[in-house]
Design a protein around this nucleic acid. Structure first.
Lengths: 139, 139
DNA sequence: GCTTGACTTAGACATTGTCCATTGTAGGAT
DNA sequence: ATCCTACAATGGACAATGTCTAAGTCAAGC
């Protein structure tokens, strides 16, 4: 059920009630919660969990490479538990809904050498913007 | 020399000392200043300019479509006066240096219909990550 | 040179995130 | 089973970035 929790367990990660709750809250597909959203949901299961712990725990999951940080807007960072299959994001400009997407093509190959300014290029993020069906209907 | 200022003038934008200074500070190629950096530079030319004015002015330039907001990290928004030719960004993971790049290919065409989740997709941002020559040498 | 509505200001406030000293506890050692 | 100890959690202060408001100021048209 909880893939994320399983992965973390298999790394000798010290398990605590707080960490378990954070991992459970974050698990799933197309999940892109902010730290505060994670905290709110965690609190409903473990009322005494603190904000700092949620931030620390999310930060550790990111360091372990089991969770991705996503910045689709200039507001809060979002956390994406689907760190294993590389993917990009499609964001609704109105409501902020986010979907994971897997475009064809390889943007890295599309960056010519003379546009690299001597950088060692290691990765690329692609963010599609648009309007979701829901917002299109309401507008 | 100040293209940005010229463009703004030609739109009946009410001109004030503050707005002129902000436009001048922001003009150029590969310019990606944060609001606070813009403020700091503006203050050196017009000591009494306020932070709120800089934020307001940058926001208006963005609304007018003459300046782009760029979020290459989760820190402060950056402002890019080069709103004419569409382009993407290459960011140094160590020092945060940013270059404008123009990759080949069309990422919009690479997003299959069955990965669009019914969204009306209107744009795409591509952010390349890597290490700049300077940081590679120092590391 | 007036008038007026738009612009600017200073600072309070909001949001998101980090840090630190203290307290608690998971998991190995006995 | 219990004890130890290093690691984790807590909560509250602090920092960075951005927004808002009420009052004063000014650019541009008449």
């Amino acid at each position: 059920m909880s893939d994320l929790l399983e992965r973390l367990r298999g790394r000798g990660w010290r398990m605590t009630a707080q960490r378990r709750v954070v991992a459970e809250v974050l698990d799933g597909d197309h999940v892109h919660l902010t730290a505060d959203e994670v905290h709110a949901r965690a609190v409903s299961r473990l009322p005494e969990i603190s904000r700092a712990t949620v931030y620390n725990t999310l930060g550790e999951m990111v360091s372990l490479g089991e969770v991705l940080e996503v910045s689709t807007d200039r507001r809060a960072k979002r956390y994406d538990p689907n760190a294993h299959r590389p993917h990009h994001h499609l964001v609704c400009a109105q409501c902020g809904a986010i979907r994971d997407v897997h475009p064809a093509g390889n943007p890295l190959a599309d960056l010519p050498t003379d546009e690299r300014y001597g950088f060692m290029v290691s990765g690329v993020e692609v963010t599609y913007r648009g309007t979701c069906p829901n917002c299109a209907a309401t507008a």
